[in-house]
Write a protein that binds this DNA or RNA. Structure first.
Length: 349
DNA sequence: CAGCCGTGGGC
DNA sequence: TGCCCAAGGCT
């Protein structure tokens, strides 16, 4: 029996029942696929329901404001996904007459849709025969076929892409693509794979060689840099000073408190003597709130401290990105995790 | 094209 | 604790 047939048979009895698999509507499939990029099913599931509820059609999505989209996306990370989705929705709604593309080549031209997502949408919606190549597929193929070429090398990407396309079922490409990803996610897992009950147990090269735990091979990326953020809570009489981040750094366009970034972790006295502090806050006294908070991102470690200015009324909106908001309206702003988790704690009482 | 873009969970 | 990884894409 072929590789594809074994996978499909496994999938028909053991595959998970996920909500986006019940439709062939390319818009709904697109919603799920963007949400699931670099995201576990359990983490993305509630966001999928939220977006499907708020925006039943691509037209509803296109008519939303970017602020509303980012607010709903809050907490999911990789926020450029939401901004690219907005661009794509507007293209589909206003240039393509509301008809979501279903062919691979057309999908590939849309913002936020790369090779993986174009293959997923085209195969799931109309059965186009394009093999998906995601982290699951890399892992399954490298193990079953015993390939130790690094999956994040140029050579590896070409090799696995070609192999994946050779293996796809031309009878039912959509089910095959679902099957190989589900198999990777639930059986051929990164850690503690279920080799004892695996349908490829008798033919898996890695299992035979005892190299399952060593595959796939991945070139290590360079380690994260450290950054030191000092946030200032300027709040008085129900008004809070908020700052909107720029577009060329982490958390682009998200809201936070006024921020002073320093080269290292400064003590309060030194911080208050910096030119920036004196420019923004004069000689206003601050009091620290709690200790240091470490926030880990994919390419940087952020060490954050929070301070409160008791005499907040003397602080002006000194940047055009700084604006006062009523405390009860903060919930409407799209904030990154460091900020909304602080707010949840600090204003809980 | 190597580096960047978030967050959460497992061990 | 620190590291890996998760239905990737953009520049």
């Amino acid at each position: 029996m072929s590789f594809a047939s074994k996978l499909i048979i496994w999938y028909q009895s053991e595959g998970r029942d996920l909500p986006w698999r019940k439709t062939r509507d390319p818009y709904i499939i697109w919603l799920s696929e963007i949400i699931l990029q670099q995201t576990r099913v359990e983490q993305g599931l509630p966001y999928f329901y939220t977006f499907r509820e708020h925006f039943p059609t691509v037209l509803d999505f296109a008519e939303a404001s970017e602020d509303e989209l980012l607010r709903l996306w809050q907490g999911l990370g990789y926020y450029s996904r939401a901004r690219n989705m907005h661009k794509t929705a507007k293209i589909v709604a206003y240039e393509l007459k509301g008809e979501f593309p279903v062919d691979y080549d057309s999908l590939l031209r849309l913002p936020g849709i790369g090779e993986y997502t174009a293959a997923a949408i085209s195969s799931f919606s109309v059965g186009e025969s394009k093999a998906v190549l995601d982290g699951n597929v890399f892992r399954v193929l490298s193990r079953v076929f015993g390939i130790s070429t690094a999956i994040n090398s140029t050579e590896g990407k070409k090799l696995f892409q070609s192999l994946a396309q050779d293996l796809i079922s031309t009878i039912d490409p959509g089910t095959y693509n679902h099957a190989i990803m589900d198999f990777g996610a639930t059986v051929c897992k990164p850690k503690a794979p279920l080799c004892e009950s695996c349908v490829f147990r008798g033919e898996c090269a890695a299992f035979e060689e005892g190299s399952v735990a060593l595959l796939p091979v991945k070139i290590k990326s360079k380690k994260s840099r450290d950054r030191y953020f000092n946030y200032f809570l300027v709040e008085e009489d129900g008004l809070v000073l908020m700052a909107r981040r720029g577009g060329d750094d982490v958390w682009a366009n998200m809201y936070e408190f006024p921020l002073l970034e320093t080269r290292e972790d400064l003590d309060l006295e030194t911080l208050m003597r910096t030119d920036e502090y004196r420019f923004f806050f004069g000689s206003t006294v601050v009091e620290p709130i709690g200790g240091i908070t470490k926030h880990v991102l994919s390419h940087q470690n952020i060490y954050a401290r929070f301070f409160r200015l008791p005499d907040a009324k003397s602080v002006l909106e000194k940047k055009d990105t700084w604006h006062y908001f009523f405390l009860e309206n903060l919930d409407k702003l799209a904030k990154h995790k460091l900020i909304f988790s602080f707010i949840d704690k600090y204003f809980k009482d």
